[in-house]
Simulated assay, not measured.
Amino acid sequence: MTFPETLLVSGTTAFLTGTFTLIVQYFVASLQRRNEKDKALEQEKRTAYKQLLDLVFNVLGSIANDKNPSNKTNDENDIFKIERDLTVYASDEVFQLFLALRKASDENQNVVEALAKLILAIRKDSGHKNTAISLREILSPVVRNPGKLFENL
């Protein structure tokens, strides 16, 4: 092989290697950005779920212990923020069950069942895909004397 041919082969090889390296770096950076975005969205979702569960369990605990639930104005502000965050970050199933809970509450239907389904969906969306906890069990930690609350579950 002559010197110009060797130079051409070396130059082509260097160009292809450089191009391949740039493509790989682009894809790695793209995957890293996507992973960071997914982590941020997951954190926002978990925060929204935690806020909802804190509010719900505080109200349930107050009712179960025959106490008045907390300040209604604060609850309304919290609920607005939670609804806003659930609209953006919750999975489709959790969001639909949240809407079903609101509808059950508005229509004086079985709110306890709707709430238990929502909490189980949050649990599954948070990583416990094969949970074996029942609707009755999911609310039992906060409702110590369920009485008729669990009648239909």
Rank of each mutant, 00 (worst) to 15 (best):
F150H: 07
A132R: 03
D78I: 00
L149F: 14
P141T: 05
S30T: 10
R144A: 15
L60E: 04
G11F: 14
N65K: 13
T131V: 10
E83T: 05
K67V: 00
E44F: 08
E113Q: 11
L31T: 00
R123C: 00
G147F: 05
R34Y: 10
Y26V: 06
D38C: 06
V28H: 09
S30Y: 10
G61D: 03
K81N: 11
T131F: 03
T19H: 08
L118M: 11
L7T: 08
N71S: 08
A100T: 05
Q51H: 15
R144S: 12
A40P: 02
K124P: 02
F98K: 03
D66I: 07
F95A: 04
F80G: 01
T19Q: 04
L139H: 02
R34G: 05
T21Q: 10
T6V: 14
T73S: 13
A116N: 05
Q25E: 11
E76S: 12
T12V: 15
L53T: 11
H128E: 12
D106K: 11
R123N: 11
L97K: 13
N35I: 08
L101E: 01
L55D: 03
S134Q: 08
I79M: 13
V143C: 05
S105R: 08
T19F: 15
K67T: 06
V88E: 07
I63A: 11
A104F: 01
L55F: 06
A121K: 03
V142C: 07
F95V: 01
F95T: 03
D75S: 09
D75V: 06
T17E: 02
E93W: 02
E76P: 01
E36P: 01
I82M: 04
L97F: 06
D125L: 06
D125F: 06
F150A: 06
E83M: 02
K148N: 14
